[in-house]
């Protein structure tokens, strides 16, 4: 199944959710991605990815308390699920393995 591997942006969103812990909701995620990676992402893109991840079962969500700045509407908080954690670990493992296979001299002079 194609969905077992994470896409690049999916991975970033997942990592961001993991790093934000209990504060992970869409606007926050967009801001965090922007501040950490410097990538200006659109809410729509993030929203779509969140939806997809939730469908895949990699994240779970629940509604929080309504706040005034949102016009009295509740936030949807995301949490990384067990499957999500596994997927992230797997991705990291794959990369680490690849990294470890690269001889030192390839990157000589860059650092």
């Amino acid at each position: 199944m194609k969905g077992t591997n994470l896409g690049e942006f999916e991975e970033i969103v997942l990592l961001t959710i993991a790093s934000l812990m209990a504060e992970a909701y869409s606007v926050n995620i967009v801001d965090e991605i922007a501040s950490v990676t410097g990538r200006k992402t659109k809410l729509g893109v993030v929203h779509a990815v969140l939806n997809r991840l939730e469908k895949k079962g990699l994240i779970t969500s629940e509604l929080g308390e309504p706040t005034k700045e949102r016009g009295g509407r509740r936030k949807r908080f995301f949490q990384i699920s067990h499957a999500g954690k596994v997927a992230l670990m797997k991705a990291k493992e794959q990369r680490d393995r690849l990294w470890s296979n690269i001889p030192e001299l390839v990157f000589q002079g860059i650092r």
């Binding site: 869409s26 809410l43 509604l63 700045e69 949102r70 016009g71 509407r73 509740r74």
Partner: peptide, 29 residues
């Protein structure tokens, strides 16, 4: 509900720039 909330949050941010811009972005979104 949360989508409306998100957009509202952005709207509030954009309000600092100008009412028109906020309206426009909200509409496009």
């Amino acid at each position: 509900e949360d989508l409306q909330g998100d957009l509202h949050e952005y709207y509030t941010r954009n309000l600092k720039k100008s009412q028109f811009k906020a309206d426009l972005i909200y509409f496009l979104d």
